[in-house]
């Protein structure tokens, strides 16, 4: 693996990603200032999830990493999702 030269993320890409992240932050603030109950929470978490994806893919350059690493990272998030779902099922069915 060390033979292959590492991918160098251009400055431009990093700048564009920052601009998107900043815009999404302000979109989140706007959305959460409108009180729409459960929709607000879902929207804020979806945007946070997308921002997290951008940080992982570009700043942490997973987009150019080996398949092994990308699958491992994905599995950690799947594991966390399972823990959340199972805990909430337990919580919902307690008398």
């Amino acid at each position: 693996m060390s033979e292959h030269t590492p991918h160098i993320t251009p400055y431009r890409t990093l700048g564009i990603i920052l601009l998107i992240l900043l815009s999404l932050t302000f979109v989140t603030i706007e959305i959460t200032s409108i009180h729409l109950g459960a929709f607000t929470v879902t929207a804020a978490l979806l945007i946070a999830g997308f921002k997290g994806y951008l940080v992982l893919a570009y700043f942490m350059h997973l987009k150019h990493e080996s398949t092994l690493l990308r699958v491992l990272v994905a599995l950690v998030f799947v594991l966390f999702a399972l823990i959340v779902v199972i805990t909430f099922i337990d919580y919902a069915f307690r008398s």
Binding site: L14, G15, L18, L21, F59
Partner: peptide
Amino acid sequence: LVSSMSVA
């Protein structure tokens, strides 16, 4: 966010 970009 800015500091994350600057370190990148």
